[in-house]
Nucleic acid binder design. Structure first.
Lengths: 233, 233
DNA sequence: ACCTGAACACCGTTCAAGT
DNA sequence: ACCTGAACACCGTTCAAGT
């Protein structure tokens, strides 16, 4: 005689570390990273929360594994990018890699917040940075300057920036009263908002377009680094 | 007849929102941000955790208030910095303000992680950014370019960067076996470590000196922005 | 008006027990 | 070898009760 529990057990594939990690990524994608609890992830896999401990050491290990999956994705996309052909091409190659990493981050908006909390680096991410370092070297950077360069890029090197302003600028529906208040309290920001709202939405580069701002900052840094490289040699 | 409870009640000052917030900052400073729980903060103030809810709406409100205190500190230090005297002085003024903000962050190492989780901006932080915008304007930036500039600076504008590498480089005690492994797996990083360990500790700028790296990246951005300003006019 | 104690709905994690 | 259920030690938060 077959109970429903038996049927469920037969229907589902056996659990594995990889299945757990993939389920965690899907759960974070659909319901946000705060939904990724051991209990919730268990029910998502049709299993008790405690069963997960057979495949991951603890929640920290789970998140480490999740980040590994994300970085693996980055590395496979980066592998498709063409390597730098010489010192006049390093900027393009670096840009391609970083924007490939960014495309992965845009697919998993929660990933930056998880990456930030990781204590140590996995081989996957060390490999990614090793690749970036290789691009700098082909570009003619000394190890010393390349090292500074990686620090200067910071999290931008793997495709994200810390956005301090939550995108309140998305709908620019500020009452004229609020705006007047803003102008008196914060004259510069107030006037900036006035100028922007006057020029309209299809202005220059778009108001707070994350991708545009990311690329602006990235190119600013890459151009600066290229100048530092030339000054060095 | 006076019980010990009465004595405690008499000894302590009355609770207030400000006393709660200040206690939270001190607790975070001494025991780390993860120690700041409602229960722990309550005992720290000689009161039940639930009493705190008379002075803060909830934990989120508590953290908002804590950030406000930090930003107030930044603003008072920034107020001491001399304003820009003209378009040839904006970079110095911007640098002074950002490094003043950074000095506060260095006093409260946990602050960046809390600031990152805040959803909305308080008047205090809007005021800080209004000041930065004023410096850009004195420097001759258009509002459009100044806006890009703030995004490009990102969290650096308030004195911190997302450090991806945990400071494992502090003690450089890597065995030659580990190093050999590193060189084969990650040739570029491996060779960089060899070069660095060869040159010794009192090399050029110090290995992963956070302050040095922060200033390197900051100056890279400020120099790039100054060029963008000149190209604009 | 402010503080308390018990309770609720969550966490991550352990451990002995099942198959 | 893998999964389960109960339990533990924490969270933030509510609510009725005290003063």
């Amino acid at each position: 005689m077959t109970t429903t529990a038996d049927q469920t057990a037969q229907r589902r594939k056996p659990l594995s570390r990889n299945r757990v990690l993939i389920a965690a990524v899907h759960l974070a994608d659909s319901d946000g990273i705060e939904a990724v609890t051991m209990r919730r992830l268990g029910t998502e896999l049709g299993v008790e929360a405690m069963s997960l401990y057979n495949h991951v050491a603890n929640k920290n290990d789970l998140l480490d594994g999740v980040v590994d999956l994300i970085v693996d994705d980055i590395n496979t996309r980066v592998a498709l990018a063409s390597p730098p052909t010489g010192s006049d091409d390093w900027k393009r190659a670096m840009r391609d890699r970083i924007l490939a990493a960014r495309s992965v981050m845009l697919d998993h908006k929660w990933a930056p917040s998880v990456i930030e909390t990781r204590a140590s680096l996995s081989p996957a991410i060390i490999g990614y940075f090793d690749g970036l370092l290789g691009v700098f070297r082909t570009g003619g950077f000394s190890y010393d300057l390349a090292h500074h360069a990686l620090h200067a890029l910071g999290s931008r090197a793997i495709g994200f920036t810390q956005e301090l302003f939550e995108e309140s600028g998305s709908d620019d529906t500020m009452t004229s009263e609020q705006l007047k208040q803003m102008v008196t309290s914060f004259p510069n920001i107030g006037e900036m908002l006035e100028v922007v709202s006057h020029d309209g939405p299809d202005d220059t580069v778009g108001w707070c377009d994350d991708q545009t701002e990311f690329i602006f900052g990235l190119d600013l840094l890459l151009d600066g680094l290229d100048r530092a490289r030339l000054a060095e040699s």
